[in-house]
Design a protein around this nucleic acid. Sequence first.
DNA 1: AGCTGGACGTA
DNA 2: CGTACGTCCAGCTG
Length: 876
Amino acid sequence: MTDSAKPTLLVVDGHSLAYRAFYALPVDNFSTRDGQHTNGVYGFLAMLVNLIKAEKPTHIAVAFDTSRQSFRTREYTEYKANRSETPPEFAGQIPLLKECLAAMSITVLEKEDFEADDILATLATAGAAEGFDVLVCSGDRDTIQLVDDDVTLLYPNVQGVSQLKRYDREAVIERYKVPPEQYPDVAALVGETSDNLPGVPKVGEKTAVKWLTQFGSLDELLAQADTIKGVVGNNLREHIDDVRRNRALNRLLRDVDLPVVPADLAVRPIDAQAVRDIFARLEFRTLLPRVFDAVGVDAAAAPMSVAQAPAPTEPDAATLSSWLERADGEVGVTVTTLGGLPERIGLANGEDAVEVAWNEDTAAVLRPWFASAAPKVFCDAKSQVKALRRADAVVDALAFDVLIAGWLLRPSLPDKSLADLVESYLDEKLPESDPTQLVPEEEGATPGQLSWYALRVGDALRQKIPDRVSDLLTEIELPTLLTLADMELAGVAVSHQKLSTFSAELAARADGIAQDAYATIGHEVNLGSPKQLQQVLFDELELPKTRKTKTGYSTDAAVLADLQESNPHPFLSLLLQHREATKLRQIVESLDSAIGEDGRIHTTYVQTGSQTGRLSSTDPNLQNIPIRTEESKLIRAAFEVGAGYETLLTADYSQIEMRIMAHLSGDEGLIEAFNTGEDLHRFVGARVFGVEPAEVTPAMRTKVKAMSYGLVYGLSAFGLSKQLRIEQSEAKELMLEYFARFGAVRDYLRSSVEQARIDGYTETIFGRRRPFPDLASPNRVLRENAERAALNAPIQGSAADIMKIALLNIHAELGDAGLSSRVLLQIHDELVVEVAPGEWDAVERIVTSRMGDAASLTVPLDVQIGRGADWSEAGH
DNA sequence: AGCTGGACGTA
DNA sequence: CGTACGTCCAGCTG
């Protein structure tokens, strides 16, 4: 424990720790694009940052050896002569490390003819005398001798430099059985192979310690060497000069003449700009915030280099045309919009940028260019593609979308905008005007400059994206993006008439239920407030306390149903009915208000909205329209076929996740289940319960179905028992029976999590990756959550991949066939298609076959088709 | 006005 | 102690 009143001096042996880091970290993962290895620098700095954060030193210095030559090699030419050549991969890293330290305003010391450890010894000695707590960080065992009441040694363990062991006086005695000042005596007797200092043969630490304890000191031992019997005694006498030499050489010098004293080493503010620059050169991204954090620099406030974005010119239509002709290679594109239509267009190639207003003249030049094969790079293309399409411009050759690429690389997000990506991948700050300032100090980037940034971010991302993920982007995500743009533009026809009628009915019903509920407890209460409900249920009605939540006790539907069973009270069922009615009313009303002038709802699909590869839907969310209850049919019935079209077609994959599970696990039983055409849950139930398929009862089928679906989510026996309301022992028995029949499923699930632990990420059938750092977490909750998510990710993600492939193939084929029917909605495993008059047969064939052949698995992909004038009729 | 937690809709 | 989402409301903060 350090005395907080005393200043802390940290002195580090730069060379030895960087060298350790070099061997601890894989070179391949730490190299710049131009081939400079950086693992030693990175490992050293990561360690130093951790040290600074943990120990909060007030004074710091890092010492280096100047060369292999020192006064020791002059005294004993064989000293360290056995050291192999410094690996060339390491050689260049020391100067880079020194540059980093300089940027961090950390003093670097080295002195001709002395080793770094002598500098450490001198500073430690002086520091202790001047009232510092001293921390010595070195990978050389000779520094053990420096430990005393004021000096602590931090020594790297075998794994590398991420874990440092603290050696204070007690720790040295515990580990080496001698006090620190006597350790060099032990070392002198034993010898140090790494320094090419042979010791006494057959004498190891044990013997050395025994002798020293017996004789009290090395001098006394050597003086009485004659008294020691046996072979070791002879050896000692024969090697007594070696021991004396070793002891002389391993004594660290504590009085090296240095240009600084400890007080000069006070921590100084880092040069944030210089740190950014050198880190950018070394392509360190994650280290930067850690450094800023450790030294208490506000990263946002620290200046970040703003690369000189070219000032865009504003050409006339003719000049624009020739600019586009000259621009070979990728062109960055930014379309700003006003009221859903293009307003300004910014274009950039590698060198310069142009921007123009969207008007008749420029549009005449831009339309053919957008439709051409010239490769285009966007950031978040979908909304821009839609705006262009509204202005009769079609985008082809969409080569890259930096937002989607960033998401593929890190689906857990935070990169929601170009500004985020510029920071993450270029370590630069996108010029942004402060919206809170009336007269902004800084101009925001113009569309042309945004395009220039997008292009550069695209280059940076390309370096990072694995080939398979790059294929995923090109083959699946970008075509999907264009398909989604069309679906959003089309929208889905919804009947305001039906919704408003239903909404009024639900409102009246909810009010009635509320009144009845108030009557049962004798007063009004806000039924929508969990807090007020807790008051009523647990204080007034004195019902038993339920599951705990962060802020109190749960009042959710499952809990209320349990309560109703154990402590029936009319308030409980009325509350549940009220919840149901108000929830439906909310949904109906929000849908109603989302109907546009064209009588259709246009949702927005967020392509980067999930961590698994699924889409999400917002404003409004059309992927969670109720379906389970009778009432919800009325909502779905409001989704109708639009004017000019004949009918709606729904198509959904049946049990796609279980089929993927069968494919990935290769389980013969499960594969057979899908190939026989028997009802899946009946087939599985027959196996699990050992009966004929015809004898599987509805109860058996329910259990097996819950089990099968639960598997995909990493369900436990506890969870299964809870859901099925059966004993945990029965749930456990069920799981055992299941795995006895479908063992390969269990093997697959286990091995896929193990593989993810090794790789650090999961992968879908099509190569989509999702990182799982928490699989290595020592925190059990975090780790087990990660395990379940990792179990699910390849399955859910593969299903998402397959649906995307089906969707874009259907979209393309409908277009190619010249049909006017169009896909409107995607609900994860279901598509809703609006079918034009006379096109049913063709559309049904296309949808069925493209969904069926989207992937070739060991089991068939079964597709169910529904037909009707509205979504309720068309569903099944 | 903006955020969090609880609740609940979907696959 | 079952994955993946989005939205609503209440109740808190500024």
